[in-house]
Computed example of a mutant assay.
Amino acid sequence: MNVLLVPPLEPPRAAELDNTPEAMQRAVGGPIQAIYPFEEPVALICHEEGKLVGLPLNRCLRLDNGEIYDIVAGTFFLCAAPPDSEDFESLTPEQLERYRCRFARPEIYL
Score class of each variant (00 low, 15 high):
residue 96 L to R: 09
residue 102 R to E: 10
residue 5 L to H: 09
residue 54 G to P: 08
residue 46 C to Y: 01
residue 80 A to H: 09
residue 92 T to G: 02
residue 6 V to S: 00
residue 80 A to G: 13
residue 97 E to D: 10
residue 7 P to E: 12
residue 108 I to E: 12
residue 1 M to Y: 04
residue 68 I to H: 02
residue 100 R to G: 10
residue 1 M to N: 02
residue 83 P to H: 05
residue 110 L to M: 07
residue 61 L to N: 05
residue 56 P to E: 07
residue 46 C to K: 08
residue 39 E to I: 09
residue 58 N to M: 05
residue 35 I to E: 05
residue 34 A to K: 13
residue 1 M to V: 11
residue 17 L to H: 09
residue 61 L to M: 14
residue 41 P to Y: 09
residue 11 P to E: 12
residue 88 F to R: 13
residue 104 A to W: 15
residue 20 T to D: 01
residue 25 Q to F: 00
residue 96 L to H: 06
residue 30 G to C: 05
residue 105 R to S: 11
residue 83 P to A: 05
residue 103 F to G: 03
residue 94 E to G: 05
residue 83 P to T: 05
residue 67 E to I: 12
residue 15 A to I: 03
residue 13 R to H: 12
residue 54 G to I: 10
residue 64 D to C: 03
residue 75 T to I: 11
residue 32 I to E: 00
residue 103 F to A: 04
residue 84 D to N: 12
residue 31 P to G: 00
residue 40 E to R: 12
residue 91 L to W: 14
residue 42 V to Y: 10
residue 1 M to W: 03
residue 58 N to V: 09
residue 80 A to N: 07
residue 7 P to N: 04
residue 64 D to E: 15
residue 96 L to G: 02
residue 107 E to Q: 15
residue 93 P to Y: 07
residue 64 D to P: 08
residue 104 A to E: 04
residue 87 D to N: 14
residue 47 H to T: 07
residue 67 E to D: 13
residue 104 A to V: 07
residue 52 L to E: 14
residue 15 A to H: 06
residue 21 P to Y: 10
residue 86 E to D: 13
residue 37 P to N: 04
residue 85 S to L: 09
residue 32 I to V: 15
residue 90 S to M: 12
residue 73 A to Q: 07
residue 79 C to S: 14
residue 18 D to Y: 03
residue 14 A to Q: 09
residue 76 F to K: 05
residue 70 D to Y: 12
residue 84 D to T: 01
residue 93 P to K: 15
residue 39 E to V: 10
residue 19 N to M: 04
residue 1 M to L: 11
residue 107 E to K: 08
residue 57 L to N: 03
residue 66 G to I: 09
residue 85 S to A: 14
residue 91 L to T: 09
residue 19 N to T: 05
residue 63 L to Q: 15
residue 13 R to W: 07
residue 46 C to L: 14
residue 28 V to P: 06
residue 20 T to Y: 01
residue 88 F to E: 08
residue 45 I to Y: 03
residue 73 A to L: 07
residue 89 E to T: 07
residue 100 R to N: 04
residue 89 E to H: 07
residue 107 E to I: 08
residue 52 L to A: 15
residue 44 L to D: 01
residue 68 I to P: 04
residue 86 E to H: 05
residue 85 S to T: 14
residue 22 E to M: 04
residue 22 E to G: 04
residue 1 M to H: 09
